[in-house]
Design a binder for these strands. Structure first.
Length: 553
DNA sequence: GTAATAACTTAGCACTCGCCCG
DNA sequence: CGGGCGAGTGCTAAGTTATTAC
């Protein structure tokens, strides 16, 4: 395999010295020179915060089966309440949801209950549902004092459980609360929707902290499953959830040193790709002619991943999750080839459900060699067959890491997102623009990335109405106010309209090197808080600190 | 070599909260 | 000064990738 790039690995300290690192980041970095894989020296925390115990229904609220009042056991009653709470949701009418729920609910019943309750259709959760709605209503109508008291109680919980001590730093924890029990929903057509997500007990919990630290105290009468001292991982608490059998973790907040450094590294790898992407592109273009079918498939997949920012697309176990795909797992039915379309040659029409069951629909002209290969891959295949039947994400990533250390499929998304933002900002903004115009341009650049990465959202429920309001304000303002304000509102309206189905947050938070944005703000004379809110400024503190006006991704 | 597992990032949606308008 | 609304935040599902187990 050709090595196309200089390795980037194992040069942490050296890498840093290349940068105008200032303030705490530098000091913090200097103090930790850990051997490979070690994430901390000292870790102390309070353990997880458990949701409140189940409160039995009051005596005047009843469950009915086949028209008759039935007093349920505590365990069965709790699960009945989960279902009753969701009754306003459309998915409680879905067959899969109902069947999964009923099956799991029956497991929680006593023998007597189980022999009585055999048909979900005969269950009447009406009173329980009404009680729940009344509770929600009551919470909304709390007095100021009650709300204040609640807020203070919550703050106390955050103070006690929300922080940990990692080496010499007090760090905010990302998710210190144990996920409460309920009915699993999942996204899209999930085969496990409606299943009971069980209550987590201290006996399910693994605690990770350092040997010298105070070990968190389990709730009275309970003990932890295990206490371990593994400083090669970053999690504080873990447990296994019962729906997929996967492990859940409590980890640090994005504004922590540990996460910040990782984030910085991610963008440095993406920048490294910038310097060798031309070589990598010519390599996979020449691989399109390979005699090896698997190499050709890899080349076409790479072409898509690079050009369209598709995800890698791991194999998934059938029946365990919704039927979604990424690049390597595309099937015959997900693409249609058009020799000619809309006046363009060699158009590939994509239509598939990706991560979170978000639809990816795109018509893309491709180079002839890619088109011909796709035709070849489709020969003698049926819908349901894999397009890239000789390709696995593991092979792809192995190949990529041989081209550049640290390179994997997802780096292309980061790289293409960041480079697109930088180019769009250059193209769209002028120093002489007004603040509102600059922000519109920034959002448009952000939007270009979100579209590339297919970050969609459901149009806000009140969209049409609020759009109309904004439009009419426009007219009122025109009558009585100066043109500048008119312009500002027009710009806002444009921004919102263009953003109807696009989610900017994901790319801003995960794909766009924050130094591009910070440098742009400096260039444009805009305060950073015009584009980053408080938590974004926290997360990107490292970039805000170190970025010079002339930063180039 | 392949499958399973572990660890970590990425993702959209629901809810909350604070601000603005009538 | 209450209600509506959008921005911000919390939540946790759903990905990717490296590592481990067989």
């Amino acid at each position: 395999m050709a090595i196309l790039c200089e390795p980037v690995v194992c040069q942490r300290a050296v890498k840093l010295c290349l940068h105008p690192f200032i303030g705490f980041l530098f000091i913090r970095w200097e103090e930790e020179k850990y051997e490979d894989g070690v994430k901390w020296r000292f870790l102390e925390h309070s353990g997880p915060y458990f949701p409140p115990e189940y409160q039995p229904l009051p005596d005047n609220v009843h469950f009915y089966y086949d028209g008759k009042k039935v007093k349920l056991s505590l365990a069965a009653e709790e699960v009945a309440l989960f279902f009753a709470q969701m009754l306003d949701h459309e998915y409680t009418t879905k067959k899969v949801f109902r069947e999964n729920f009923f099956k799991d609910w029956r497991k929680e019943m006593t023998d007597a209950e189980r022999s009585l309750i055999q048909d979900l259709g005969k269950c009447d959760f009406g009173e329980i549902h009404a009680m729940h709605k009344a509770k929600v209503e009551a919470r909304k109508n709390m007095t100021k004092e009650e709300k204040q008291a609640l807020k203070e109680a919550n703050q106390k919980i955050v103070d006690e459980f929300g922080y940990c001590l990692l080496d010499h730093h007090r760090e905010r924890i990302g998710n210190f609360k144990i996920e409460p029990p309920g009915l699993f929903r999942g996204r899209g057509e999930h085969p496990k929707q409606g299943m009971l997500k069980k209550r987590i007990q201290p006996e399910d919990i693994i605690i990770n902290c350092s040997k010298e630290a105070c070990i968190p105290v389990p709730p009275a009468g309970h003990r932890w499953k295990e206490v371990r001292h593994d400083n090669t991982v970053t999690w504080l608490v873990s447990w296994t959830e019962n729906i997929q059998g996967s492990i859940k973790y409590i980890m640090l907040n994005a504004n922590s040193k540990l996460k910040g450094e990782k984030d910085w590294e991610k963008y440095e790898v993406a920048r490294k790709l910038k310097s060798c992407v031309d070589n990598i592109r010519s390599q996979y273009r020449s691989d399109l002619k390979s005699r090896q079918m698997s190499t050709r498939q890899r080349a076409v997949a790479l072409y898509f991943i690079d050009k369209l920012a598709l995800r890698a697309g791991n194999e998934k176990e059938e029946g365990e999750t919704a039927d979604t795909v990424g690049c390597c797992s595309l099937r015959v039915e997900h693409i249609t080839l058009h020799e000619q379309m809309d006046g363009k040659e060699y158009v590939v029409e994509f239509d598939f459900l990706g991560k979170d069951s978000i639809r990816y629909y795109n018509k893309v002209p491709v180079i002839k060699k890619v088109f011909k290969n796709l035709k070849l891959f489709l020969e003698n295949k049926q819908p349901g067959d894999e397009l890239f039947d000789r390709l696995y994400t593991s092979m792809l990533n192995k190949h990529l890491s041989s081209l550049m250390p640290g390179l994997t499929a997802k780096v292309f998304r980061t790289y293409n997102a960041s480079i697109t933002l930088q180019e769009q900002l250059k193209e769209l903004t002028n120093k002489s623009d007004s603040v509102a115009e600059k922000l519109l341009s920034y959002n448009r650049a952000n939007r270009a990335v979100a579209i590339l990465c297919n970050h969609q959202r459901a149009p806000p429920k009140t969209f049409d109405q609020s759009m109309a309001t904004l439009q009419s304000k426009r007219k009122k303002a025109a009558v009585k106010r100066c043109e500048e304000q008119l312009l500002k509102m027009e710009i806002q309206a444009t921004d919102r309209e263009e953003n109807k189905q696009i989610a900017l947050g994901t790319s801003k938070l995960n794909y766009l090197d924050p130094r591009i944005s910070v440098a742009w703000c400096k260039n444009m004379g805009l305060p950073v808080d015009k584009i980053y809110n408080k938590s974004q400024r926290d997360k990107f503190a490292w970039a805000i600190d170190m970025t010079e006006v002339d930063f180039e991704f």
